[in-house]
Amino acid sequence: MLKYFASRLLTFVPTFLGVTLISFAFIRVLPGDPIIVMAGERGLSEERYRELSEQFGFDRPLVVQFWEYFTGVLQGDLGQSFVTKKPVWDEFFALFPATLELSICAMVFAVALGLPAGVIAAVNRGKFFDRALMSTALVGYSMPIFWWALLLIIVFSGNLQWTPVSGRIDLIYYFPDPTGFMLIDSLTSGQKGAFASAVRHLVLPTIVLGTIPLAVIARQTRSAMLEVLGEDYIRTARAKGLSPGRINGIHALRNALIPVITVIGLSVGTLLAGAILTETIFSWPGIGKWMVDSIFRRDYPVVQGGLLLIAVMVMIVNLTVDVLYGVINPKIRKR
């Protein structure tokens, strides 16, 4: 197992190098000069332009700029945002917990509902429940996020007033946030009602962000289960007289899990890369909106540093998924 883990870890190195180069090149390939964008309609003199170019280091050859960026990265220095003038690292870690918290909740929601839904649909293949579930999943998958979020807000926050409209916690609560995870910080703050408020604020964004992964997981679980349920060993298990619960839950599901975990892994990667629309609508202070704003402002250090950090997170998730394959299916780790 250790050898398997190490071999997966080794693939990190070339990927990391590639991502560093791509993240550096990506933003520079886009047209638009950050200094001109910053000056806006006001414009600036050529002299001032030269001065700022020098200050930001744009006057040096690209290779030199990349080398400085790369050596900085190796030393844990991702540079400083042109716009906020703060270190990229600080900004990322101020925002990432919010994204992570929401992603985890959305994923738990999607797996908790999607996995059983897929299993039940597979077992009841062709029946009403199966068809209803799969049609709902298709609708969930094709729903425009923006519209879905606003609809939920209008119904549950506007008309019914069950949930707050947006934000992470009611504004009456104010406490330090050592972890950045609102559920944990509100719980440790000792303020009455803070945790409940944080939970309520999570409900709608979790549903919105979890809807697509939920649909994907349900459909993937169903098709994987159907494949496995047709295998000879399941027929044997049935012939042995095992209970349907044991057959479906243990013999079938465990073997159907590999493709499902792949899908979950990919979904987590997507969620971590920033749920831009969900974060924007629910005023959720995460990294998705931060990255998009930075691309529009041509804030080079934030874009390249943010991309790199997100890529590393996704790589870690993929590594975890690879390791999980090994845990679930011993054949894989022996290859």
Binding site: S157, Q161, W162, I172
Partner: peptide, 9 residues
């Protein structure tokens, strides 16, 4: 439970 949470400041 939810409704109680939508308090204004």
């Amino acid at each position: 439970t939810f409704a109680l949470g939508t308090t204004a400041v």
